[in-house]
Each structure stands twice: as C-alpha cells, then as structure tokens.
Amino acid sequence: MEDKQKICDLLLPALQATRGLSDVVKLEYDGAQEIVTATFENGYQKTANVAMDSGTAMIRDVIYQIR
C-alpha cells in the first residue's frame, strides 16, 4: 500500500518550484474520501479526486485537477 500523504508531501516542493503552481502551500490527503486538498497562499482551496489511483496516477490527477 502506498503512503499517499507522503507522496503529497514530496510532490509539494516540486509544484512550488513551478511557475504555474508556485503558490500552493499545502497538499493534504483524505483517505476516507480519497481526495487531495490543495491550499494556496491566498487561502483558496481546490480538491482533486484520487479514488482508486496508484501513486503515479494520483500525481497526474492532482496536477490536472488543481491547476
């Protein structure tokens, strides 16, 4: 079983190094709902549905759904 919160923790600095998502300050995985919540500098939040995703699919889904 993959540690999806750890994947989010490792993905965050990579996103922060980009021009398009440099304002993301937090990625939080909710295992019960299988969503990732991205919090931005201005307090705005976006969610990504990552139900049934592998770790690599989750990375793709998060990037696609929060940009």
Rank of each mutant, 00 (worst) to 15 (best):
L27V: 05
N49K: 12
L27F: 09
R60F: 12
L12P: 07
V36G: 06
Y29D: 08
V62E: 06
D23V: 09
I63L: 06
T18W: 08
Q45R: 13
I63F: 03
K4F: 15
V24I: 14
T56F: 10
A38R: 05
G20K: 15
I7W: 06
D61C: 02
M52F: 14
V50N: 07
A17I: 03
Q45N: 10
V62S: 00
Q16A: 06
A32R: 14
K26P: 03
P13M: 05
T47V: 11
G31K: 01
A57T: 10
Q16H: 11
E34H: 07
D53M: 12
Q65W: 10
L10R: 11
A48Q: 02
A32W: 00
S22N: 13
I59C: 08
I7C: 00
D61Q: 13
N42T: 11
A57V: 08
D9N: 15
Y44M: 01
D53T: 12
L10E: 15
I59E: 07
Y44D: 00
I35K: 12
E41S: 12
G20Q: 15
M58Y: 01
E34S: 12
R19L: 14
Q33D: 14
L21N: 11
D53A: 13
L12M: 11
K26T: 08
K46G: 09
Q5L: 12
M1G: 14
R19Y: 13
I63W: 01
V36T: 07
E28K: 12
L27E: 04
A48R: 01
G31T: 01
L15N: 09
D9P: 06
A48E: 09
E34L: 05
N49A: 10
I7Y: 04
A48M: 07
D9F: 09
A17C: 08
N49W: 01
T56G: 02
Q65G: 06
Y64A: 01
P13I: 03
L15Y: 00
L15T: 05
N49Y: 00
R19K: 15
T18S: 14
Y29T: 05
A38V: 09
D61V: 04
F40H: 02
R60V: 15
M58G: 02
T47L: 09
A32Q: 15
A32T: 13
G20V: 13
T18E: 09
L10V: 08
E41L: 00
I63V: 15
A57R: 11
M1N: 12
D30M: 06
G43K: 06
I7A: 10
L11Y: 08
Y44P: 03
L15G: 00
L27Q: 02
M58I: 00
K6R: 13
E41V: 12
Q5H: 14
A38W: 02
P13R: 02
C8K: 03
I35A: 01
E2Q: 13
L11V: 07
G55T: 08
T39M: 00
